[in-house]
Amino acid sequence: MKVKAVAANEVVSVKLLIQHPMETGRRKDQGGNIVPAHFITEVTASHKGQDVFHAEFGPGVSRDPYFAFQFDGAKAGDMLTISWVDNKGSSEKSDFPIVAM
């Protein structure tokens, strides 16, 4: 997971890249077999214990999801916690520092 969180006037702009195959469950491999669905279902971001972002994804989100959002009320030096979970139960949770613009 690559995250860039930049604060300007208490508004934080976050850009994320999560490496994930985001298999739709409809693609066939070279042998003609269906590749099982495997995709991120939820992404959450929290700051000081409060959720500031929550998204539900389906397999229509591109491979290696790259997305951006903004939230209020944090400053450079604070930490942002980001977690995701996929349809097979894999998950990742990490803290990232918010930096000044």
């Binding site: 959720d51 929550h54 539900e56 994804f57 389906g58 229509g60 959002f69 903004q70």
Partner: peptide
Amino acid sequence: SPLVASFDILPRTR
């Protein structure tokens, strides 16, 4: 399946 993503716009989300 037409739905791609759904975002909660929480009190602090822009």
